[in-house]
Simulated scan of single mutants.
Amino acid sequence: MDEIVDGVTHPMGAAPFREACRAALDRDGVLCLPDFIQPAALEAMLNEARGAQDKAYFCTSRHSVYLTPADPAYPAEHPANRQVESSKGCICDDVIGANSPLRTLYDDPGFRAFVAAVTGEAALYPYADPLSSINIHYAHRGQELGWHFDNSSFAITLLIQKPEAGSRFEYVKDLRRADAGEMNFEGVRKLLDEEMTPTVLTMEPATLVLFRGRNAIHRVSPNEGETTRMLAVLAYNAQPGVALSENARMTFYGRLG
Rank of each mutant, 00 (worst) to 15 (best):
R103N: 05
R103H: 05
T104D: 11
T104F: 10
T104Q: 14
L105Q: 14
L105M: 08
Y106L: 15
D107P: 12
D107I: 07
D107R: 15
D107H: 10
D108G: 09
P109L: 01
G110C: 15
F111T: 06
F111M: 15
A113R: 15
A113S: 12
F114N: 05
F114E: 04
V115M: 03
V115E: 08
V115Y: 06
A116T: 00
T119D: 02
T119E: 01
G120W: 03
G120A: 02
E121M: 15
E121S: 14
A122V: 10
A123P: 10
L124P: 13
Y125L: 04
Y127L: 11
Y127W: 13
Y127E: 11
D129W: 13
D129I: 13
P130L: 13
P130A: 08
P130N: 12
L131T: 01
L131I: 10
S132Q: 02
S132R: 01
H137F: 02
A139S: 10
H140R: 13
R141V: 07
R141P: 05
Q143K: 07
E144P: 03
E144N: 04
E144W: 04
E144D: 05
W147I: 04
W147C: 02
F149K: 03
S153L: 10
S153N: 14
S153A: 14
F154V: 06
T157Y: 07
L158C: 07
L158D: 01
L159Q: 09
L159D: 08
I160Y: 04
I160E: 06
I160M: 11
Q161W: 04
Q161M: 12
Q161I: 14
K162Y: 06
A165C: 08
A165W: 04
G166A: 06
S167I: 09
F169E: 04
E170G: 13
V172A: 07
V172W: 06
V172G: 09
R176G: 12
R176T: 10
R177L: 15
G181M: 14
M183F: 12
N184P: 13
F185Q: 14
G187W: 00
L191N: 00
L192D: 00
D193Q: 00
D193G: 00
E194G: 01
E194V: 00
E195A: 01
M196T: 03
P198T: 02
T199S: 04
L201K: 09
T202L: 14
M203W: 09
M203S: 15
P205R: 05
A206V: 12
V209G: 01
L210A: 11
R212A: 09
R212Q: 07
R214D: 04
R214Y: 04
N215S: 05
N215Y: 05
A216K: 04
A216V: 02
I217V: 09
R219W: 02
R219G: 01
V220D: 07
V220G: 05
S221R: 06
S221M: 03
S221L: 11
P222G: 04
P222T: 00
N223L: 08
E224T: 07
T228S: 13
L231F: 07
L231G: 07
V233G: 14
L234H: 00
A235T: 14
Y236I: 02
N237H: 08
A238V: 14
